[in-house]
């Protein structure tokens, strides 16, 4: 369970987040939406503990993320998978080595076992046979999927995904959406997903949080969001309405 209370964040003098409070229940998929620069990614970084809040608290399963000792933080990291916006793969290593990295860091598995696990994880995200390629040889979507495979390497309880579908073509985006739902079922994982894409968000979310200029505007299930009377929420949804259709169509085509 993830609990955020009155979270405030700032870069220097510029305030980025103002008084965010929300709770993510176990095995729930929470999608954070909002315009670019509204503080979504910063919010995610606070959840992972990459940044310390200026005020407020972030608790995951009862412990304060920003106040952990390094040992506790490592234990926390072992149960958490993170997919970064650009994939976050180490460009100096092959894809296989990237996926193997957390395994080598946290387990004492023998190299052949690690090789098998790496192959399995890559197959799970539909990237069988690219272990020996360098990240630079992969396309954007493949990078994201490879990043996802690395995030899944340690069978995490909690997954943080930063824009898993942004910038990808609809087909691949839909594939990733499906993958996310499947992973939730397999790993029984709690997920926090940052996204722009309204269609895919509606598709995967149990709850949606809408941010605007560092504030939480609306929080609820996809249906509640759709039915919202809030002007900004209406604007946000409507501006995407035409493309929403396309998205639906594409998804229908996929099915």
């Amino acid at each position: 369970m993830i609990e955020v209370r009155d979270l405030e964040a700032a870069y220097g003098e510029t305030s980025v987040l103002q008084g965010i409070s929300l709770t993510v229940q176990p095995q729930e998929i929470m999608v954070i939406m909002g315009q670019s620069g509204c503080g979504k990614s910063t919010f995610l970084r606070h959840l992972i503990g990459l940044q310390k809040p200026r005020a407020g608290t972030v608790q995951i399963n009862g412990t304060h993320v920003s106040e952990m000792s390094h040992k506790d933080y490592r234990a926390f990291c072992r149960s958490v998978g993170v997919l970064f916006q650009s994939g976050g793969l180490f460009n100096s290593m092959t894809v296989g080595q990237n996926v193997a990295f957390p395994l080598k860091e946290y387990t004492r598995l023998a190299d052949p076992v690690i090789d098998i696990v790496v192959k399995l994880k890559l197959q799970q995200v539909g990237l069988g046979g690219v272990e020996n390629q360098m990240p630079s040889e992969l396309s954007g979507g493949m990078k994201k999927r490879a990043g996802l495979a690395r995030a899944l390497a340690l069978d995490p309880n909690i997954l943080f995904l930063d824009e898993p579908t942004t910038g990808l073509d609809p087909i691949i985006a839909a594939g990733i959406d499906e993958l996310i739902l499947r992973i939730r079922d397999i790993y029984q994982a709690t997920m926090v997903v940052v996204a722009h894409d309204i269609a895919s968000s509606m598709q995967i979310a149990d709850k949606i949080a809408l941010f605007r200029d560092g504030k939480l505007i609306e929080l609820g299930s996809p249906e509640e969001i759709r039915a919202s009377r809030n002007a900004y929420v209406r604007q946000f949804l409507n501006r995407q309405a035409e493309r929403d259709e396309d998205g639906e169509g594409a998804l229908r085509y996929l099915r």
């Binding site: 990459l50 490592r74 993170v82 970064f84 650009s86 976050g88 793969l89 180490f90 460009n91 943080f160």
Partner: peptide
């Protein structure tokens, strides 16, 4: 250059998120 590139491509954050300093 090496670490700068890693910084730009979120690799440093990825390291941190794996509990590695």
């Amino acid at each position: 250059a090496e670490i700068g590139t890693m910084q730009v491509y979120d690799e440093i954050d990825a390291l941190k998120s794996m509990g590695i300093k």
